[in-house]
Computed example of a mutant assay.
Amino acid sequence: MDRLSELEVFLAVVETGGFTAAARRTGTSQPAVSKAIGALEDRLGVALFNRSTRNVTLTDQGRRYFDRMKPLLEEIEDANREVMGSGADMSGSIRIAVPTTFGRLHILPIIPNLLAEYPSLRVDLVLSDLRRDMVEDRVDLVIRVGAVEEPDAIVKRVASTSLLCVGSRQYFEKHGAPSEPAELARHNCLVYGGFEEVANWPFVGPKGHFSVAVRGNLTSNSMETIRAGVLAGVGIGMFTKASLVKELSHPDVVTILDDYVQATRDISFVWPKRRLVSARVRRVTDFLAASLEGQF
């Protein structure tokens, strides 16, 4: 078996979870798969798999090798399809991670069009407000709203969205509406961001940029939770405009302190730093970017 075939067998074992399943995928026998993996491990001088009677799992070296070799083989497959005149046939999978609210409002509606454009594509869409490790979680593309904290990542900024300070008419009728940011200190402000009880919300005044420390009786690492609390009249929240697409036209939703809130947040596509990004990921990225253009 040549070296490229060994790599294809290696990927099949990882993705199917076993030698027998990999043999079915590659159209070979289980002994042939074992032989190919053994030859690859001997050539590399490391064990790629932990083997037991029940399952096969990657070693740390195997995981790193998989993360580097998968996009390389995908690029080879894409190049072969282009040469054979089938470049638009994007078979295979892509895993996309996106914040929950942004994903629900802006990415989910695009997915049917993406799959219609590329029927052979398989999309694994992960909606989570947790910051995911792109390599460890085997994520091909991350969509970020706000700062990108991965220093080695490849970042493509595609849009920006303004911040808004928002409450419900129900809340303001009961507690009054602040006329300047400092008054937020006496209001119930719902804090997004996890375990922090206090948040520093950014504002701009005659003397430049400043922040106000706010707190309230509800904190969460889920933007959906904070959004629901504000809409129910529990307190005041700070959101990106992209998180409140429909609510801004609702008669019970009121933006406040508009003259003081001028900050924006970037919307970026992020890839883990690899030697190359597969054509599949590039095409999906271009499709999503074009679909999002002008929305914010």
Rank of each mutant, 00 (worst) to 15 (best):
V230T: 12
V145I: 14
P206S: 14
G45L: 00
P181R: 00
E196I: 04
G87E: 15
V9F: 03
C189L: 03
E136Y: 09
E136S: 08
E224C: 05
I94M: 04
N113T: 12
P202D: 01
V148D: 11
G85S: 04
G193A: 05
L125D: 10
V245E: 13
T285V: 07
V139N: 06
L231M: 11
G216M: 12
R275C: 09
T264K: 14
L114P: 00
F102D: 03
M84Q: 15
R265H: 12
S128V: 13
W271H: 13
G85D: 02
A21P: 05
V254A: 12
L40V: 05
K70I: 10
T20F: 06
V145W: 02
G87L: 03
V126L: 07
P151T: 05
A12E: 06
V166M: 05
T101A: 11
G176N: 15
S168I: 00
L115A: 06
V145S: 06
K246I: 03
N113I: 01
F172W: 11
I107Q: 14
S249L: 12
N113P: 00
V166N: 01
F10R: 08
G208R: 01
P99Y: 10
G27N: 06
L164T: 01
S222P: 01
N55A: 14
S160T: 10
D2S: 15
N200F: 15
V166C: 04
N200C: 10
Y65T: 14
L231E: 10
K241D: 11
V155G: 10
F10W: 08
V46M: 13
I96L: 06
T264A: 11
L127D: 06
S220A: 04
L130H: 14
A22N: 01
